[in-house]
């Protein structure tokens, strides 16, 4: 796994011709606008994880073009605090058939800023038997937080699988009640649920230190 810790710029356009796992951990001071384009060649898999714990405005656009029998797994985790404005857009284009894509975005909007998760999955004419799924979830910790999750699917073939899920919200009352009914305090329950949405993504960076760093950042949040 190639991990990039706190890169100054993310912009790139690359051809992926052998299986690759890549992780980015954004902390501070990188260029505000970033565009990452990946052309994923036939029979190739790209595993991309982007974790953002930065204190600044962020605008990241990821685009993956999938050729025959290729696959991409994109995960984004973001913690948005204060009044920062963070936009993440993940687009996947199934250019050829038998390609598979999974996009998962999880966020916490802890302040009064904006956190946007956008994304289009496109299956073009002729990309038969392609399979796409995108999901996004943001937990607002502050009533003044502005968040939006809007995945969309553009499908031009019938024999494909496509699905999406989106959720923005404060805590789910039934989940909280369930955890508390087992003795966890309100605070502990919220922590478990909040960490829970981001941690699996951070853990997939496969780096204990980064997991610790992320936990510390989340531990400082007042829930």
């Amino acid at each position: 796994m190639a991990n990039f810790y706190n890169p100054s710029s993310l912009s790139l356009h690359e051809e992926i011709s052998k299986d690759e796992k890549r992780g980015y951990f954004l902390k501070d001071r990188f260029e505000q606008d970033n565009e990452l384009v990946f052309d994923v060649e036939e029979n190739t898999n790209l595993d991309l994880t982007l974790v953002d714990f930065s204190s600044q405005d962020v605008n990241v656009h990821i685009l993956a073009n999938l050729k025959r029998n290729s696959s991409v797994n994109i995960q984004v985790a973001s913690l948005c605090s204060q009044k920062y404005q963070k936009h993440f857009q993940v687009d996947v284009i199934h250019v050829q058939g038998d390609s598979l894509s999974r996009t998962k975005m999880a966020g916490i909007n802890a302040g009064e800023g904006k956190l946007f998760f956008l994304g289009n999955s496109t299956i073009v004419n002729g990309a038969h038997r392609s399979d796409t799924r995108q999901e996004g979830k943001i937990t607002n910790l502050n009533p003044l937080a502005k968040s939006e999750v809007s995945p969309s699917l553009l499908i031009k073939e019938n024999d494909v699988k496509a699905s999406h899920g989106a959720a923005v919200g404060a805590y789910n009352e039934s989940e909280l009640f369930y955890l508390m009914s087992r003795g966890l305090s309100l605070e502990e329950s919220k922590k478990l649920i909040t960490y829970g949405s981001l941690l699996p993504i951070i853990e997939s960076l496969g780096d204990e230190k980064l997991v610790e760093e992320a936990k510390n950042s989340m531990g400082e949040l007042s829930l």
């Binding site: 789910n172 989940e175 369930y178 955890l179 087992r182 966890l184 305090s185 478990l192 649920i193 949405s197």
Partner: peptide
């Protein structure tokens, strides 16, 4: 019982026992 996505059963059980 509600689904609690993101929360791993093991972690929850430990927190639950520790709370007691």
């Amino acid at each position: 019982p509600p689904d609690v996505p993101g929360v791993v059963s093991m972690d929850f059980f430990r927190a639950m026992i520790n709370a007691h």
